[in-house]
Write a protein that binds this DNA or RNA. Sequence first.
DNA 1: CAGGTCAACGAGGTGA
DNA 2: TCACCTCGTTGACCTG
Length: 273
Amino acid sequence: MEFDSVCGTGLTLGLCLNSSPSMVNLNTMDSTKQPSFEPSLTLGLSRSHGDQNGRVVTKVGGDIGMLYRQDSTVISGGGSSFSNKSSKREREVGSEESERVSNDNNYSRVMSATSVNDGEDDDDCANGRKKLRLTKPQSALLEQAFKHHSSLNPKQKQELARELKLRPRQVEVWFQNRRARTKLKQTEMNFEHLKKCCEKLTHENRRLQKELQELKALKSSQPFYMQLPAATLTMCPSCERIEDTKSALVKNPFTMGAKPHFFNSFTNPSAAC
DNA sequence: CAGGTCAACGAGGTGA
DNA sequence: TCACCTCGTTGACCTG
């Protein structure tokens, strides 16, 4: 970024700031690495999905819907008006159904991990009024896996699900949410960093503006001849008299052109007025 | 009870 | 086409 302020006095004040990665693509950013910002005032967040703002999300099912779907898969097997994706999910649920059934005991145990009334767990599970809370060991293991890989391949997912006695879909969702949390945290950190940079630059700008004012004041307080361009002034080294060649010409236009009056101590050491 | 957290969802994008 | 991803959201649950 470059900031130049040119004022009427002919003084130019420039402030150049290097911004190596002025934009950080959060979508491709490694969450484990800190971006190396240089002071920059660019505060943009890139988003590859341009059409997502203002998109109206019509939620059909939700948590209850999902559970209802599970129920309908098991009990009635119909009555859903879900899209193809839902059908896909239903297939996935269906394919995982045997595993889910085999894990049902544990699932209920997990559901009751923070439950007050354990006796109603099965009923609550069935009507979808309870929320799954992962146990501490489960969370710890997932965190450990996340530290190793922020995303899983199908084999790792299956293995982790088996180890945690969860459905692969749950492991998958946990990783999705975990990535989202990491990204959010990173965004907040980036925001704080940029805020600090912004404050620093504002401070620096203020300081330079002040310096500029001082230079302006200094310039206006100096004698007139000091304000003339150096090329139009001559000074006699012996008498230290300063003469403006232009004004000399104006004074006596009929004389020969003003002798170059620059002192040259090498060629004419005794030159004097 | 308001606000935060988190598992889970649907919509839509993307790469193989 | 499908699997997987991000994004935005929902609703149950927790907490001060």
